[in-house]
């Protein structure tokens, strides 16, 4: 797995367009979200939207495009001609993007805390939410790659999940400003893709009783499971004949 991850990292760096979008786009999102946070929901909103935006971009979009590309040029089939397991191949291909997204999130969130003078009420909840977001988007990337014929096609097939997740996270930020805690809208959002994660980060950032954390935690776990099940059912190793 590590040999594939090392090769994938080299390819990421050598492809200037992909390197630019994977390395710099998340920081651009971070900058935008922090600026918007002054008018909407504060840093808790910025953090929740940021996590969804960064993971959706750096993990979901990149992983879907990478997997479609590697399948189209039969690189996946070539890897399956070796002794490496299927899990090792997928793990190796996705490890660099996941690690990169983790580092980017850590830099941005720690920067927000240090530079913004913020305190995070419950960091463990934030970390769990980020891990669940990564699992969900990795699963959805594998599933989406299953219906994506080429890297170019990924620009279309990723749109529904990407925009729904971003919209739900923004809604979560707005909701945290204008809604009462435990509102029915919050409950609905918790079970939409990305909604549980966004709610969980907002609540973990600003602090909330355990009972309030349970619905978004349930939603986030549910979508992580949906992502993995969809990946198992939809992912293909070879182009359609």
């Amino acid at each position: 797995m590590l040999a594939i991850a090392a090769a994938e990292s080299k390819m990421l760096v050598r492809n200037k367009l992909v390197a630019f979008s994977a390395l710099l786009m998340p920081f651009l999102f971070g900058f935008l979200m922090i600026n918007m946070s002054e008018n909407l929901g504060g840093f808790a909103f910025a953090a929740s939207s940021l996590v969804i935006s960064v993971v959706a971009t750096a993990v979901y979009l990149t992983a879907t495009t990478t997997l479609a590309s590697r399948r189209q040029n039969l690189f996946l089939k070539r890897m399956r001609s070796t002794a490496e397991s299927d899990l090792g191949i997928i793990g190796g291909l996705l490890l660099p993007t996941v690690v990169l997204a983790g580092i980017q999130l850590a830099v941005i969130l720690v920067g927000m805390v240090v530079l913004g003078g913020e305190t995070v009420a419950n960091p463990a909840v934030v970390i769990v939410a980020i891990l669940l977001a990564i699992v969900m988007f990795v699963g959805l990337a594998l599933a989406t790659a299953g219906v994506t014929n080429s890297p170019e096609h990924a620009q279309v097939t990723t749109l529904p999940v990407f925009f729904i997740a971003i919209a739900v996270s923004v809604w979560a930020g707005i909701g945290s400003t204008f809604e009462e805690p435990g509102s029915v809208f919050g409950l609905v959002r918790a079970f939409l893709p990305g909604g549980g994660v966004a709610e969980l980060i907002g609540l973990g950032w600003s602090g909330a009783p355990i009972a309030e954390l349970l619905p978004p935690l349930g939603g986030a776990v549910l979508w992580a499971v949906i992502g993995l099940v969809a990946a198992r059912r939809m992912f293909r190793w070879e182009p359609r004949v």
Partner: peptide, 24 residues
């Protein structure tokens, strides 16, 4: 394979060593 399965961004020797390593 009947058709090549390469990652174009890798060099020839990197690809050969990768497949060799993964094949044990």
């Amino acid at each position: 394979l009947q058709e090549t399965g390469f990652a174009g961004e890798l060099t020839t020797i990197e690809m050969i060593e990768l497949v060799g390593k993964l094949s044990g």
